[in-house]
């Protein structure tokens, strides 16, 4: 464990807690893409298949349970909570995410570390995570200005993966064997997808204006 990875995990945790706070406190999920939340739930479930078979550390196990639990709780809330579900932008959240699921799965069948069920699903979850934010970014574009909690959610989510890139650089420099090419390349693609959002987020923060994404 290094400081970059810890910072990344904490930022990731904050992004999830910000989202849970927004939904719980305001009893509203306007501006949040249910499709992105469902993709993240799939990412965590398929990535942590080793939850009960490989014990790495208490921290690792606890964080896996928190990520799986919170992502499923958010999806449940947005789908079934009688108050929250009314504020879901159903007609704006129309990204055809089956494409993302299909492409990620096919890529995982081709590119993986070992051809075992667990490894193929692990690679699938890595590729899927890289593109899972797309429905949310499209929803932010369509709903124009971003209410600040949704914007913060995306900001922390992008920052977490940027910290992980620093973590991979650090591990590449300090460990003799580096076997994280799948995560590393996918993480770079993921962070690049956030780059334009970060640009507009920074501009709006600098001008102290509401975040206006170009339509």
């Amino acid at each position: 464990m290094n400081i970059f990875r810890l910072a990344g995990d904490m930022t990731h945790l904050i992004s999830v807690l910000v989202l849970l706070l927004k939904i719980y406190a305001t009893k509203s999920c306007s501006g949040i893409s249910l499709k992105t939340q469902e993709l993240y739930a799939i990412v965590f479930v398929t990535r942590y298949l080793d939850l009960f078979t490989d014990f790495i550390s208490l921290y690792n196990t606890v964080m896996k349970l928190v990520f799986i639990g919170s992502s499923l709780a958010i999806v449940w809330c947005m789908r079934y909570h009688r108050v929250v579900r009314r504020s879901y932008d159903r007609e704006l959240d129309t990204f055809r995410y089956w494409i993302l699921l299909g492409v990620s799965f096919i890529l995982a069948l081709v590119l993986h570390e070992k051809f075992t069920l667990q490894e193929v699903f692990w690679a699938f979850s890595i590729y899927l995570e890289a593109v899972a934010i797309l429905p949310q970014l499209v929803l932010l574009q369509r709903s124009g200005n971003v209410d600040n909690l949704a914007g913060q959610y995306v900001f922390f989510l992008g920052a977490y993966r940027a910290f992980y890139i620093l973590n991979w650089i650090y591990r590449y420099l300090t460990e003799q064997r580096f076997t994280r090419w799948i995560s590393c390349v996918s993480g770079l693609v993921q962070t690049a997808l956030y780059a334009d959002f970060f640009y507009y987020y920074f501009i709006s923060w600098k001008n102290n204006a509401k975040l206006q994404l170009p339509a």
Binding site: M1, R5, D9, H12, D50, D54, I56, S57, N60, M63, K64, F67, E113, W122, Y164, N167, T179, R180, S183
Partner: peptide, 10 residues
Amino acid sequence: REQPQDHDEL
């Protein structure tokens, strides 16, 4: 104490 696990990251 890093496990030799390939996937010790979240």
